[in-house]
Simulated assay, not measured.
Amino acid sequence: MKLFFILTVLLLQIKAEAQTSASSVADSLYTIGNYSKAINEYSKVGGLSSALQIARSYNAIGNYEKAIKQYQYVVDEDGTNQLAQLESGKLLLKMNRFEEAKSVFTNLTEINTDNPEFQFYLGEANRNLNLLEESLGQYKKAISLDSTHLRSLFQLAKYYTIKRERDNALKYILMGLNFYENDVSLINLHALVLFNDSQFEKAIPLFERVLELGEDKDYVYEKLGISYNKNWEFKKAKEAYTILLKRDDTNSQTYFDLASVYQKESKLDSAKIFINKAMAVQKSIFVNGYSHIYRP
């Protein structure tokens, strides 16, 4: 009997060591991105930890349906596994399965009321379901739990900027910038709020900062051109519009805006040149469109 006990213990030890070795091999494969082989190795190990890693591996290689099934298996076996639910909910959002994602994050916010991430992702699900009031409420809950939650601050700031609710927009923008002073998205929103409020002089350095931080987009030059013009900085306005025309010389509005700068400088001949260019571009677009519509 004693010998049988010893043999049983030895066999269990050997099995545990083999599983540990197999798990180490699987983890190594996962770490270096060899996900398909990692899946095979995790399958040999078994257990919920391996099942979660298999879900992550399927997610990494883009086999989202299998990843979701694997996450669901883990959750079905262990309903307290918040990490598996979080990762599956985020993947469901990525797959545009918003109702299912909402269900996952609703459950998470109920079992863990202190996690701002769960509130944020529930807000994302509601936003994509066009449940705007609900989503705003979730973002605000996230901020009440963590006043530095940048993504929630951005979503609120963006919403109120679009709605032209200046005070509310600035409230969340400045909260974010207080912690993340170089966040280009918030700086951009700050500039847009001031621009929309016709505070062009204050908007200019913010748009310039957006460019410095690498957001080299056409709309920034467009807003800067208008702001420079309004602020009587004609040289800079022309430079901004020149950049836009180098990128796209078929935009009639850019020619009209440039003409406006020359008009304010009382350089009417130059203004006329750019007005004519704008009209020529519009005529060309009209003729091209007309020919497509009436082509036999």
Rank of each mutant, 00 (worst) to 15 (best):
Lys2Val: 13
Leu3Met: 12
Val9Asn: 03
Ile14Arg: 12
Ala16Met: 10
Ala18His: 11
Ala18Pro: 01
Ala18Glu: 15
Ala22Arg: 07
Ala22Met: 12
Ala22Asn: 12
Ala26Arg: 04
Ser28Cys: 02
Gly33Gln: 05
Ser36Trp: 07
Ser36Asp: 14
Lys37Pro: 01
Ala38Ile: 04
Ser50Gln: 08
Ser50Glu: 06
Ser57Glu: 01
Ser57Asp: 00
Ala60Thr: 04
Ala60His: 01
Asn63His: 07
Tyr64Met: 04
Lys66Asn: 14
Tyr73Asn: 06
Val74Tyr: 01
Gly89His: 06
Lys90Ile: 11
Leu91Ala: 05
Leu92Asn: 03
Met95Leu: 14
Phe105Leu: 02
Thr106Tyr: 06
Thr109His: 03
Thr113Leu: 03
Gln119Leu: 06
Phe120Met: 01
Phe120Pro: 09
Tyr121His: 10
Tyr121Arg: 00
Asn126Ile: 01
Asn128Gly: 04
Leu131Pro: 03
Ser135Lys: 02
Ser135His: 09
Leu136Ser: 03
Lys140Ser: 09
Ser144Cys: 00
Leu145Tyr: 07
His149Leu: 05
Leu150Ser: 11
Arg151Pro: 09
Ala157Cys: 08
Tyr159Glu: 11
Tyr160Gln: 04
Arg164Ser: 14
Arg164Asp: 12
Asn168Lys: 13
Leu170Cys: 00
Lys171Arg: 13
Ile173Thr: 10
Leu174His: 10
Leu174Arg: 09
Leu177Pro: 13
Tyr180Thr: 13
Glu181Cys: 06
Asp183Thr: 07
Ile187Gly: 02
Asn188Pro: 04
Asn188Tyr: 15
Ala191Gly: 08
Leu192Arg: 13
Val193Arg: 04
Val193Thr: 13
Leu194Glu: 07
Phe195Ile: 09
Phe195His: 10
Phe195Val: 10
Phe195Gln: 08
Asp197Phe: 11
Lys202Gly: 05
Ala203Thr: 11
Ile204Ser: 06
Phe207Val: 06
Glu208Tyr: 00
Val210Gln: 04
Leu211Lys: 02
Glu212Phe: 06
Gly214Ala: 01
Asp216Thr: 09
Asp216Leu: 07
Tyr221His: 11
Glu222Val: 14
Lys223Asn: 15
Leu224Cys: 07
Ile226Gln: 12
Ser227Pro: 10
Tyr228Val: 11
Phe234Cys: 15
Lys235Asp: 15
Ala237Val: 12
Glu239Met: 09
Glu239Trp: 03
Leu244Met: 06
Leu244Asp: 04
Asp248Asn: 15
Asp249Ile: 07
Thr250Val: 05
Gln253Phe: 11
Thr254Ser: 04
Tyr255Lys: 08
Asp257Glu: 14
Leu258Lys: 12
Val261Glu: 02
Tyr262Thr: 02
Lys264Gln: 15
Glu265Trp: 01
Glu265Gln: 15
Ser266Met: 12
Lys267Cys: 02
Ile273Glu: 14
Phe274Arg: 00
Val281Ile: 13
Lys283Gln: 13
Asn288Phe: 00
Ile293His: 09
Arg295Leu: 15
